[in-house]
Structures are given as structure tokens and as C-alpha cells.
């Protein structure tokens, strides 16, 4: 890490911390002066700019790289900006909406590194279901007027200090890495398939070298035959690759998570049932 980038990172983090502290709601939920908000917004924007300058600027020459780079900066700045707005909004409805912005920007970043399934899954699960449920609750809870505890920040100074210390150490350690790591250059290891097969062999021991003809082996076959246009040299489609990894590498984890979710589902049905269990007929 060069001295210039070290100073830039520190300056960016300091500016961002000051700006965020000024933007955060008052400790007792009172309204702040407009000049404080303007000052805080300027500081936070300058800090964000300094932080973005730390990253490698997008290459200008092939147009595709320029577009991808610009989108990266758009989504990265969008995620950070929306994140700041999430914690600084005084109205919880706006906070939830800015959080949706964070989720969508993050999904855009996932798309840029070709993690399409993760992007779609993030949007469906978080933006499409969880945040909508939040909104639901917030809107129904606010029918009686605005509560003080919704508009006040709990110990804003300590929160800002801790978060930006973490951010600074993250920026420091990332910038200290030699060279730039691009996800493109990380070759997907073929060994994860072998590990999955070995796992199968542990449960169903066979003669060494033979492809295990167990359920696992059969489950692997259709996904691994899904090459693009039947050409094995091209990379596997996203979802097939992910499915293969899930059911070969992480088979036990997936099964365990499935069992836990199933138990949670049964529990949810029991909780939702208004009648007391066992005492059928009695009023609750």
C-alpha cells in the first residue's frame, strides 16, 4: 500500500464518519438544523468519493470493460450510499426502502461477477419477500402517529466509531494485497466434484477407482451433462454448476438445512394455530 492511498483511505473514512455522524438522527429524536444535514451530506459524499478513488478506475480501451467498470462503480456507490441513507433516515419506511436499494445494488454487483443465480435469489428473497414484510409491519405499526424511539439514534457516536474503524481496517487490508485480483482469473477447481464422489464412497465403500454407482453418482449425471450447446470446453451453466456443488460438496449441509427448515415450518404452523394444543374445544 502506497502512502498516498493510505492517506486517501484514512481521509475518506474520516470524512465519511463525520458526515454519517452528522446525518444520523438526534439522540433524543429532536429535529436537527438544516445546515447540519447539508454539511453531513457533503462530508459523506466526499468520503464516498475518496473511497471510490482508492479502487482501480475502469479501463477505457475495450468498450466492454468500460461499461462493466462503470456499472461496478454505479452499483458500489449505490450500495454504500443507500446503506448510509438506511441508517440515517428518520422515517422507518424510508429506511426499509433504502435497504431495498442496498439489496438491489448488491444484486447488480453479483451480476457483474456472473453470479446470476445469487443475484436473482437475493432479489427474490430479500427485496421481494423480507423487506416487503418489514414495510408491512412498519406501515401498520405507524398508524398511531410517529413514535420517538423510531426517530432517535441510540448512541450514534459509538456506532459510527465502531463501523468506520471496521471499514478502515477492511480498506487497509484490501489495499495491502499485492496486485489486483479479478474473479475471472480464479480458475474453478475441478476437485470439488471429486470431493463429492469421495464423500459418496465413504458412505458406500466400493473397489478403488470405480465410479460409485450410488444415489449420489446418479444425481450427479444429469447436471454434469449440461454443457453449453453440448460442448464440454465451454463453462457449465450457472445454475447447473451451483446445483452440482450443492449436491456434491455440501450434500450433508443441504440435507441438514432442509431438515431444520422443515422443523421450523412445523413450528410455525403450531404457533399460528390459535387453538391451544391438546386442549381441543377450550377457548384460548
Amino acid at each position: 500500500m502506497t502512502d498516498a492511498s493510505f492517506i486517501l483511505a484514512t481521509l475518506g473514512v474520516l470524512l465519511g464518519a463525520t458526515g454519517t455522524y452528522l446525518l444520523l438522527p438526534h439522540r433524543r429524536g429532536e429535529a436537527k438544523a438544516r445546515t447540519l444535514y447539508i454539511l453531513g451530506g457533503t462530508f459523506a459524499a466526499l468520503g464516498l468519493l475518496g473511497f471510490l478513488l482508492l479502487l482501480t478506475p475502469p479501463a477505457l480501451s475495450p468498450l466492454a470493460d468500460l461499461i462493466a467498470g462503470s456499472f461496478f462503480y454505479l452499483f458500489a456507490a449505490g450500495a454504500l450510499g443507500c446503506g448510509v441513507m438506511t441508517v440515517t433516515s428518520r422515517n422507518p419506511v424510508y429506511s426499509a426502502l433504502w435497504f431495498a436499494g442496498v439489496v438491489i445494488s448488491t444484486a447488480g454487483l453479483f451480476l457483474l461477477i456472473d453470479a446470476q443465480f445469487l443475484a436473482a435469489g437475493t432479489i427474490i428473497v430479500y427485496a421481494g419477500a423480507i423487506i416487503v414484510t418489514f414495510l408491512f409491519v412498519i406501515m401498520l405499526a405507524q398508524m398511531e402517529g410517529k413514535a420517538v424511539y423510531d426517530r432517535a439514534a441510540r448512541s450514534p457516536g459509538r456506532a459510527v466509531f465502531t463501523c468506520f474503524l471496521l471499514l478502515w481496517s477492511l480498506a487497509y487490508s484490501l489495499a495491502a494485497l499485492p496486485g489486483s485480483h479479478r474473479p475471472k482469473e480464479i480458475v474453478a477447481g475441478e476437485d470439488r466434484l471429486h470431493r463429492g464422489r469421495e464423500l459418496g464412497a465413504d458412505f458406500f465403500p466400493q473397489s478403488p477407482g470405480a465410479v460409485p454407482r450410488v444415489v449420489l453418482g446418479k444425481a450427479l449425471r444429469p447436471t454434469s451433462s449440461l454443457f453449453v450447446d453440448g460442448d464440454p470446453s465451454k463453462p457449465k451453466p450457472n445454475v447447473a454448476g451451483l446445483g452440482e456443488s450443492l449436491y456434491a460438496d455440501h450434500l450433508l449441509t443441504v440435507e441438514l438445512a432442509g431438515s431444520i427448515l422443515f422443523a421450523a415450518l412445523i413450528a410455525a404452523v403450531l404457533i399460528a394455530n390459535p387453538r391451544p394444543i391438546g386442549g381441543a374445544g377450550k377457548a384460548a
Partner: peptide, 11 residues
Amino acid sequence: VDIGILYVMAV
């Protein structure tokens, strides 16, 4: 776009 139908669901 490999995820096709999933994208339609997400949007």
C-alpha cells in the same frame, strides 16, 4: 441469460 425464468420471477 442462464437463469432466464428466475430473472422474470425476481423482477
